[in-house]
Nucleic acid binder design. Structure first.
Lengths: 245, 245
DNA sequence: CGACAGTTTGAAAAAATTCAACGGAAGTGG
DNA sequence: CCACTTCCGTTGAATTTTTTCAAACTGTCG
């Protein structure tokens, strides 16, 4: 089990800027795996970077609990427009957006080699009847995801490009810290395009914002290796508008 | 019960552009009220336009099923930035974003005189243990709301201002039609500012987009009275980019 | 090595915002 | 009912922000 985590840490990382190799038990977000196992068969899946966990159009049958790795969730419209709606890591639950439908509308793609546990949805519902705390947990997870979505909706309508990028970095830092890794230095697992899509910007704009934040001295960034050198300044920049050209 | 609907139809409407006074039983979105009543006490509340159903900071105890009227849901950040995250009408469930927390983070405000049924959340959970279909229903509602949020997130990152406004009008039209009203002519219950906030635009931009759509001849609009004169053209404009200055 | 996807930067263009002004509708209080 | 105020909506012009287009550069991988 820990071996998987180790594998995760070292995969596709070269300079390996991982400060704390401490792996916390399980974050408050997801399901308690042991509780699930007492009710149903939970199957493990390993995914290489680039592979899809599910794709829009496939039948919806299961939720997936992320055990290790990093994935993105993308929504595609009929006319081909696409957007990254969320990034997921250890403790997150994937596939929730398909609940109540027969087919996936979103695709979930691994951005790093990942390990997930498959939770058949009908089994989960059946288990919820026996264990009421489970259904409450499911509702909590869905609502938390909704709050998260809305947080970013708020950011998009009220924050400029640079502020959004700053917020994004801080958010990623916080998530890494929650999992016991360094919030000061980490690897972005997604491309500039993915970040851009998620923040409703173009990839050039993201690059420019990152370069500018680096110029201001609050971060250092090389490709996907991020160091937050001045967190409080970055925090400040994520809220106010300090534009020095 | 129908009297309430009648009251709703005529309130704050002058030219009264309501074509079909047909009121459909209950849309697929929300809960079945009778099913809920067999499990718990469901209280009714009436709200005048402008009054809040709940506000950020208040303790979370109940969900609300909209029976009549029109409400907006707004998210406010600590530093005062605000945004409309959703509009709700008959059949929708409000308060879901607070599930799993003790306090509301959002405010729900009536934009027209409204009637809601209060569903105490702990009662709902308890009822879910007895009636498993109820918990599945709750999950469905939450997931549907998530899909809706993401639909708009996609729109914001891939559509221009005018396209977003066109999409918005079509969406409102469809919702009105679902409820048995005319999808061709209806009253916007919210201000330009509210639309702008929801679409991540400024109110002037929304006005300009509406004026331009009217110039192109696919809608007619006077203040909040909307007529969709060329739905297929509007549909087209909501996807492609046809800019005639 | 060479191809290639991802990243960076610059300059021009487009889109949306800001600022400002005005007109109309609704509401208040005499 | 009118005067007055306030909120909402519209429009124009200048400005800012973001995008688009183009080119170059950098690791990665076969």
């Amino acid at each position: 089990m820990n071996a998987v985590i180790q594998e995760h840490n070292s995969s596709s990382i070269h300079a390996a800027p991982v400060a704390k190799p401490v792996v916390r038990p399980a974050p408050g977000a997801g399901f308690d795996l042991d509780a699930l196992r007492s009710h149903m068969l939970v199957q493990m899946h390993k995914l290489e970077a680039g592979k899809a966990l599910y794709r829009a159009g496939q039948p919806f049958r299961s939720l997936f609990l992320v055990h290790a790795g990093f994935l993105k969730n993308t929504l595609v419209s009929e006319d081909g427009r696409e957007r990254v709606t969320a990034f997921h890591m250890r403790g997150d639950v994937l596939g929730t957006e398909a609940i109540g439908t027969s087919m996936h509308v979103c695709s979930a793609v691994a951005l790093d080699s990942s390990v997930v546990w498959e939770v058949p949805y009908t089994c989960l519902l059946r288990a919820g009847a026996a264990d009421p705390s489970l259904q409450a947990r499911l509702a909590d997870i869905l609502a938390a995801e909704m709050r998260n979505d809305r947080r970013w909706m708020l950011a998009q309508s009220t924050l400029g490009a640079e502020q959004r990028v700053a917020s994004f970095l801080l958010h990623m830092a916080a998530r890494h810290e929650d999992l016991g890794f360094s919030g000061r230095r980490f690897m972005l697992r997604m491309s500039r395009m993915d970040i851009a899509s998620f923040l409703a910007l173009k990839h050039e704009t993201v690059t420019r914002a990152l370069s500018h934040l680096a110029d201001l001295g609050c971060i250092r960034i090389q490709l996907r290796d991020v160091q937050i050198t001045d967190p409080s300044r970055l925090e400040q920049l994520s809220q106010q508008n300090e534009r020095i050209h």
